[in-house]
Nucleic acid binder design. Structure first.
Lengths: 230, 230
DNA sequence: GCGCGCTTTTGATCTTGGTCAAACAGTCAG
DNA sequence: CTGACTGTTTGACCAAGATCAAAAGCGCGC
């Protein structure tokens, strides 16, 4: 691969602590590729052939069931994704597509598995990554099971804001339809959910969201008592 | 700990491949304890102090939100649980209670983390366990997001049957209310869901379920094209 | 065997969110 | 600037599932 973003990738939690020579081995066997928007990177059911690391852009992980799709996760840079399928050498459970033009590092799955067996630090980092991913999913599932749609949106906004240093005013990243799917509702319903949040001091204008009264929003959202992991 | 079930535990995927001396070290630092039914083993939000391995009995992992609870997973023997919280040294995201009288192996989290760092085979096994757990959760979430209740029940029955060697006639393990909560519906609705499945050749009598027409049930359930991992 | 307590089932009604349709807004090519 | 295209919003209606209430089963101790 090109050396341009090597430092950035080397700083990733996943690769940070590993042996330098090993890291060099992994990176030199990998490809950094640019994909246009709306391109499918891989599909559910296919054997996992590459570990993916999003370097730049925006990627959606989704599952298409009978008729409708649902988005499982929006991947932001710089993050590795579908670690589990690669590690277990099992078929992908989710499909992936780019939302915007994206640069992705592709690490051959077999290479990854081989190096992981030799480099303990990499294995430990992978383990940690998987554990955090698992906890993410546990949260998402409980959210889905015991909160209703407007609450889910409220929580999402609070977390999104927290990720951006508790900004009370920010832009939503993707399209609203994708957000709706992520939160497990229809676009129409997302619209209405924003409507009910207006009463809790949230104003929306296009993609721009402003949280006027954080306390009121939190009271409405009843956020998770266990704080987020990352 | 007592040596009675050591072979059984040593045969677990998690401990199987590790160094014998290390395994001895882990097990001798652990406790095997018997708990009565309906006892809370730990609660969400508390720091993870033990890796748990269910040796015998039945354990429910659940989350209690505002008012209602939801069960996340029914743990059957012999399985380790809450690996992620232990590995990351983060608070439990789920609570656990026994459903029946249960024997549980308690491995101190610090000991587990210490040994994992030294024993590569254990680390690899833990990583694998986490990856499978992650995939479990991905499945559960998609199930929740894009199937409706009767379909979820149908799929659950098919999978439960598959776990028991494709038995067409079997007993549900726990109470129906727990099953309902696991499938993300109310007990009333579970009852009605069984009703609609009657039309697809499923007959229920108490806890006894009989699948008369597997093909019809599968057609109704539209099962996941990606086969189960374990 | 009888009665108490609990789970499950059934029925009636209500709420949430989905569906369908149309208006509206923003973007971009010509 | 204008028109076509796409995405968002609004409104009317519908369906799945929750809630409430009551009846029916079932297990267990006395």
């Amino acid at each position: 691969m090109r050396i341009g973003e090597k430092p950035e990738i080397a700083r990733l939690p996943l690769f940070r602590d590993m042996d330098d020579a090993m890291r060099e081995r992994v990176l030199s066997g990998s490809f950094l590729q640019v994909f246009p928007p709306q391109l499918t990177l891989f599909e559910r059911g296919r054997q996992a052939d590459f570990l993916h690391v999003l370097v730049d852009g925006l990627v959606e992980l989704y599952v298409s069931g009978t008729g409708r799709d649902t988005t499982m996760k929006i991947v932001e840079p710089v993050t590795s994704f579908i670690v589990a399928a690669v590690m277990t050498d099992l078929p992908y459970l989710m499909s992936a597509r780019t939302l915007t033009s994206s640069r992705v590092l592709l690490v051959p799955a077999a290479l990854m598995r081989e190096v992981i067996r030799k480099d303990t630090a990499l294995m430990q980092a992978t383990m940690h990554e998987l554990a955090l991913g698992y906890r993410d999913m546990v949260r998402a599932l409980t959210d889905m099971k015991l909160r209703q749609s407007a609450e889910r949106l409220a929580n999402h906004l609070l977390e999104f804001s927290a990720q951006r240093g508790n900004a009370w005013d920010f832009e939503l990243s993707g399209e609203k339809r994708v957000l709706a799917s992520l939160l497990g509702m229809t676009p129409e319903n997302l619209s209405r959910a924003f409507g009910t949040l207006k009463e809790q001091g949230v104003s929306v204008n296009g993609a721009r969201v402003r949280i006027e009264d954080r306390a009121a929003l939190a009271a409405f959202a009843r956020p998770d008592p266990v704080p987020a992991d990352r």
